[in-house]
């Protein structure tokens, strides 16, 4: 085939095709066959990559790009849910008003604090658990599967259960707190308590999953790094600190980003926690996603909802850029370290 490619693609292809002579020999037939094949071959190599990516971009264009652009367009208008076809130009009004919209900033701040409350303990625990699971032990698989089961539970189911467990007067958590002499906490109405409660739902669902990712990465750490560290007299804790953690840096960064994206888009947990899109009677735990939903589907204001959605998008782009920059930096520094060794 390689030879085929070099000698059977004459530039004369586009020229007059040899008219099949009545006394065409088998040789000529073969030649034509080869030529046709090579043309097909070249078309194949040229076009097939596009063919392979086309389905993705087709669907992405229809259901990803179009809504993206359209939302941007709608954000520049007054549009109401009752009549989405009727748009009235509003310029940047929907965006500029966000700047002075205390509820937007509140939602942004909540998204941020819940994001921190949910992500930091989650990843820290996952790291610790992965470290433990990396020990030689009985029932390895049992532990791993069990840790992953919350991941299979839907946001809706998990939130329903937690909402009941977190009940103020009759919830199990307050009942347990009462046993140890702590006053009941109003998990729904108190700002910090409600944000912590919602964070625990996220933590519960995702810790196991991240644990497995860390565990996989830990098992890929070259063993001789530990051996030489042990030779230098490093304690297990020091080994974890100086060998495991640095080797896991890219993985950690990756999980941080995925969790951050998830946190920015947090929606189901706060919506179902008390069953209202206002996220608490004073919007104590209303996230950006929830605020957008309330604006669009409770207040019927699609224009403003679109503007909120776009600011979420811009926020994520910023996060993405930061991720990209940091990951470049980490690869460089990791690579440098590697080559210097």
């Amino acid at each position: 085939m390689t030879t085929d490619r070099t000698n059977a693609a004459p530039p004369a292809e586009g020229g007059a095709a040899p008219r099949p002579a009545p006394d065409a020999t088998a040789d000529e037939k073969e030649l034509r066959r080869r030529r046709r094949r090579s043309w097909r071959y070249r078309m194949d190599t040229k076009a097939s990559p596009y063919g392979f990516v086309a389905p993705f971009f087709l669907f992405f264009g229809a259901f990803g790009l179009f809504p993206l652009l359209f939302t941007g367009w709608a954000a520049l208008h007054r549009v109401r849910l009752q009549n989405p076809g009727e748009m009235e130009w509003a310029g940047l009004h929907n965006f500029t008003r966000l700047l002075s919209d205390e509820f937007f900033w509140n939602a942004l701040a909540n998204t941020f604090t819940i994001g921190i409350l949910a992500t930091v303990p989650q990843l820290a625990m996952a790291l610790g658990l992965a470290h433990l699971l990396n020990y030689k032990m009985r029932g390895q698989n049992f532990f791993r599967v069990v840790m992953l089961t919350p991941y299979a539970t839907s946001v809706a189911a998990a939130t329903l259960v937690f909402a009941i467990l977190y009940g103020r007067d009759y919830g199990m958590i307050n009942w347990a707190l009462d046993l140890v002499g702590i006053n009941p906490v109003d998990w729904k109405n108190n700002t910090w308590a409600s944000q912590i409660a919602i964070s625990t739902i996220v933590i519960w669902r995702w810790t196991g999953y991240n644990t497995l990712i860390y565990l996989a990465a830990m098992q890929a750490v070259p063993r001789d790094l530990y051996e030489s560290a042990a030779l230098d007299g490093a304690s297990p804790w020091k080994q974890f600190l100086h060998v495991t953690l640095p080797s896991l840096r890219p993985t950690i960064l990756f999980t941080v980003v995925v969790s951050t994206i998830g946190a920015t888009q947090l929606f189901g947990e706060p919506l179902l926690f008390a069953g209202s899109p206002s996220g608490g009677n004073q919007n104590q735990y209303q996230t950006l996603g929830l605020y957008m939903y309330e604006m669009g589907w409770m207040n019927f204001n699609l224009g403003r909802a679109s503007a909120i959605a776009w600011s979420m998008f811009l926020l994520l782009i910023l996060i993405g850029l930061a991720y990209w920059a940091v990951s470049k930096w980490i690869t460089r520094s990791t690579g440098g370290r590697r080559s210097s060794r």
């Binding site: 103020r168 007067d169 109405n189």
Partner: peptide, 16 residues
């Protein structure tokens, strides 16, 4: 009872 009507917590206070 410091609750919003028709929430699960409120329903429990009705029940109790």
């Amino acid at each position: 009872t410091k609750q919003a009507q028709f929430t699960p917590d409120w329903e429990r206070s009705v029940a109790n």
